[in-house]
Design a protein around this nucleic acid. Sequence first.
RNA 1: GCCCAGGUGGUGGAACUGGUAGACACGUUGGACUUAAAAUCCAAUGGAGGUUAAACUCCGUGUGGGUUCGAUUCCCACCCUGGGCACCA
Length: 813
Amino acid sequence: MDKYDHTKVEKKWQEKWKQEKMNQPDMDNAKKPYFNLMMFPYLSAEGLHVGNMYAFTGSDIWGRYQRMKGFDVFEPMGLDGFGIHSENYAIKIGEHIGEVSKRTEKHFYEQLRMTGNQFDWSRTVETYKPEYYKWTQWLFVQMFKNGLAYRKKATVNWCPSCKTVLSDEQVENGVCERCKSETTTKEMKQWFWRITDYAERLNKNLEWINWSEEVKIGQRNWIGRSEGVNFKHKVKDLDIEFEVYDSIPQTHMAQTFFIVAPEHAIVEKLVAGTDKEEDVLSFVERIKKKKLSHRFDIDKDMEGVFTGRYVENYLGSGKDLPIWIASFVFVDYGTGIIGCSAHDERDFKFAKKYEIPLKPVLFPKDKKLAEKVRKLEVFYREPDGILEEPKEFNGVRWDEARGPIIEYIEKKGIGKRAVNYKLRDWCISRQRYWGDPIPMIQCKKCEWQPVPEEDFPVLLPEIRELKDILPDGSGKGPLAKQENFVKTKCPKCGGEAKRETDVMDPFVDSSWYFLRYPSTDMGNVPFDKKRTKKWLPVDMYIGGKEHTVLHLLYSRFITMALKDWEYIDFEEPYERFFGHGLLIKGGAKMSKSKGNVINPDEYIGKYGADAVRMYLMFLGGFEQGGDWRDTVMMGMHKFIQRVWKLLERKGEEGTGIAVRSMIHKTVFKVERDIERLSYNTAIAKIMEFVNWYRENEDDFKKDERREVFKTLSLLLAPIAPHIAEEIWSQLGSDFSVHQQTWPEYDKNLIMEEEVEIAVQINGKLRDTIKGQFGMSQEDVERLARVSVKVQKHLTKKVKRVIFVENKIISFVV
RNA sequence: GCCCAGGUGGUGGAACUGGUAGACACGUUGGACUUAAAAUCCAAUGGAGGUUAAACUCCGUGUGGGUUCGAUUCCCACCCUGGGCACCA
């Protein structure tokens, strides 16, 4: 009896699969294409993280299962390689990033091969290679030509230590995500992509796409749609009008003052030539500086100043209301000016601080509390509060007034229905080296011109000198110092011109990679029309929940834009998205600083890829994530050895056992669990099946035994592909188990013949009785009443009997 | 503060639309095999009480209420953990 040698077996089959081109579907002729996508990993120098393997295993099980269900599954893999993380690493070890990437790529792919996933290695995508990034540049130019790429001076997050611009998501609580130093802000001209043009559609499509509610809610919150009213006001004594957005128009009658954002262009006009001018402008300067140093705290940093100006005749009421400037108002949300009332907690606080008069119009039913509200002793705004004004709405609940009051406002002609989004345009400029150069040329005469397509790619120059890569704090990227790169001719007039020296946000690279996969062999187009039509949209996308918001939103945006430009004919890239949980260790995130990062190679070497795969999936629900523990890993290894031993052992033939029912029941359960990506319970069901075989080992006839192992091999195939293949081949079946169809179960055979029915008295379990499936209430009741245990508790008169077929009979006494 | 996810034995976790809580596994304990250990195999394993041993009884899914014949599952309030967002008018 040989021990199962996972190293030998796994290597053997991996080679065979490669030889047979098992994982390379025919891109042009596949009959039932199925695009099984997983999030490609970030090319980190540390190599494959076990968290990557966790994600990929879950996705691979799905893909393999779909293949057995008859699909031509395309399961590609690639690397997301541009970015600050790699660049910093290379700088740290003093090596050229290009070389580091070459080396890590090789290592990464080697590691990935060992995991036994059915990747199509003939079609990988690496974002940092010219043959890919030339098309990312193409995408940029399309954006530009269609008016979706533009430059604007913007306040951006700035990390003084990395000396670079950071995106909002790279700033965590005012601290740089990478180096943990406090961030500031800086005003710079940047390239933006107009994702806000798509806010409505991005939000609307969430209604129908087949994603989990949780993920949709995340997207919805990020887009932040709100519906309200725009009011128009005139400034007294000046020829200035402005609009104010109000998402809670119910309380518009409570407004007693206005606040303008410090950065707002109107500020200067408001105070020009007045005695307030100096005060106000110095206040604005001070606030701007303050904003540079740290983030605002509502309690500590609520500051404001009166402009000396008033809104004239507020909504026809005859009253003039003061206009203030305050630190907490955003210039880029709504119109940058807000109307303030007693029924906004922040306005209320601000008014108290500066002793600005307030006027409550909404009161609670509770009289005592209402009195306090009237005296402005407490802040109040609840859905069941009662409005006093406008008089047409006197006595109406706050939450019920919303719709009607908007109509009333429109009818009266004092405001217009309006929609606002929290979503901001996407700043894609990065002042770094290791990224995709933005393919734009600035000519003194012709302004910004895109690089003509025939000149693609704009190659990222190879900078050898470390000092030339390091950010210098000028705010410009390292490319700016490369004269040969910068100096160029204007594509329009042929005159002297300069190249853009910023590179693109790596999120751009990953926003369209799935489109490239089917067409990696095509050098002349980013994605072939026919192939795209055949394989996309992606049938199933599996990835971490942490990318739920940005990456998914960006790729949805790009897809919509491409649809509008008629390159593709669908507008949602992922038919289904499944977000898996996080793999942690000892209750904490794995991180290098904690020293608890698991190297999957070591475990694959020791126990085999199958054992690691099964183990990872057995830790807990795939949606929930799991906590890595070594001892359990051992158990999974034992399970595989045990299965092997059972297969090898050829004992006496038994007298026969009812195998069909058990086989069908198991197939049914495993299938049901895989369908809902509940891999941990699917594995448990397979274990039960093996345990059942073990307990009855001596009873099986030869062909029954064969049936059991055949089924086992098929059920294991998606989860533990190597041992499944080995069992399959040991049974003498034709290669390969992965080309078999998933076993079908007979509905009639999955029912239990005999069932255990619980007997309850007043909801408490008193006994269980055995009976045939589908037994009638009378029969069950008769059997139950015979039981001594039941009789003991059935001393009083039975008032009611509740019967659930095959499950329970309950007596109420 | 807001939004999501979650809280079940010593541990990871099961439990379909309210119907026998603890599947499956790890660990622990005892036993078999062995000169011994490892490996393997067998058995027990939520807690408390009870018995020579059983039988049996009670308590148990974060806390407190509620609905129900019956609640891990539904409703209300609260506490805790993890993740995300954070002055969005």
